[in-house]
């Protein structure tokens, strides 16, 4: 798969003025180069290459089993938990190769993750956010500001400021997911990975998370995996479309472009078939 880099593609940028701004801001945050991934002998991803721009929202879409979650889990080495799995190729986070780095804990602080299930820790709302900073040995004062600041940035502070001592499990599903986001940004990551963050939420809660994502791009690079094409169209600046190769049974990157392009004039017939709902 060739290097796909829509925001630096000259003709496209010139023909579509909205991409000019993108080109100006288009610093690459995560550069995926010839990435393949294996669960034991089974190949799950084949030769994926693309570049994720900084402080933008990049969506990864595709049907079930195409490897999009696997790809996301390479970015913070979550796959280390799966026995016998390994990645080949490179994922450059600035100048650090994610695949081979020895500073795993530092990497996961730089690349945070929000999961499908919010998984509130069984403790108070405040402690949910303070948990990691405390274990990282931060000073009390710094933790206190981090708690308020991250709740504020996750658009949750107003709803919970009078009951920070309540158990986190008492929050609604949408609030729990925003708490998970607050927990994630408390340790100041640079990239936030989101794995189907809204698939368990109702439309109103989903909308809140989507609004939140838009404001978070001021500070963070966001990569979101979603089943929901409308969501990708609504929130993302760039979209990567993945598909399982029917012969090799592995996931491949089919097309990566500005979201508007993917949805309005996909280059690959398979992308078009997918977004028009002909399969998947």
């Amino acid at each position: 798969m060739a290097d796909v880099r829509p925001w630096s593609d000259e003709p496209a940028a010139v023909s579509r003025p909205e991409l000019l701004a993108v080109q100006g801001a288009g610093v690459t945050k995560l550069k995926v180069e010839d990435l393949s991934f294996f669960y034991g002998k089974f190949k799950a991803l084949n030769d994926v290459s693309f570049e994720i721009p900084e402080k933008r929202i990049t969506a990864i879409i595709g049907p079930s089993g195409c490897g999009k979650s696997t790809l996301l889990r390479v970015f913070n080495r979550m796959y280390d938990l799966v026995p016998n799995s390994h990645a080949e190729g490179k994922v450059m986070l600035d100048s650090e190769n994610v695949v081979t780095t020895r500073k795993l804990l530092e990497l996961r602080q730089r690349v945070g993750m929000v999961f499908q299930r919010p998984s509130p820790f069984p403790m108070s709302i405040r402690d949910n956010i303070a948990f990691a900073p405390r274990l990282l040995g931060w000073k009390d004062k710094r933790i206190k500001t981090a708690v308020e600041e991250s709740l504020e940035r996750a658009a949750l502070l107003d709803e919970v400021k009078d009951r920070l001592g309540d158990p986190a499990t008492s929050l609604s599903g949408g609030q729990q997911q925003r708490l998970a986001i607050a927990r994630c940004i408390a340790v100041s990551p640079e990239v936030i990975l989101m794995d189907e963050p809204c698939s368990a939420l109702d439309p109103v809660a989903t909308l809140k998370i989507e609004d939140l994502m838009a404001t978070l791009t001021h500070d963070f690079t966001i990569v979101i995996v979603t089943h929901n094409m409308q969501q990708a169209a609504r929130v993302s600046d760039f979209t990567a479309f993945m598909l399982m190769n029917p012969g090799g049974r592995y996931g491949e990157l089919i097309e990566f472009a500005a979201t508007a392009d993917i949805f309005n004039q996909p280059q690959d017939p398979r992308t078009e078939a997918y977004i028009t709902g002909r399969f998947g």
Binding site: L105, Q109, M113, F121, A132, L135, C184, V187
Partner: peptide, 21 residues
């Protein structure tokens, strides 16, 4: 649930601390 473990690890905490704390 495994999600709790993953959420802890995703914050950059060492595995033994996630297990014990």
């Amino acid at each position: 649930p495994n999600g709790l473990r993953e959420s802890g690890l995703a914050l950059g905490l060492p595995r033994w601390r996630v297990s014990l704390q």
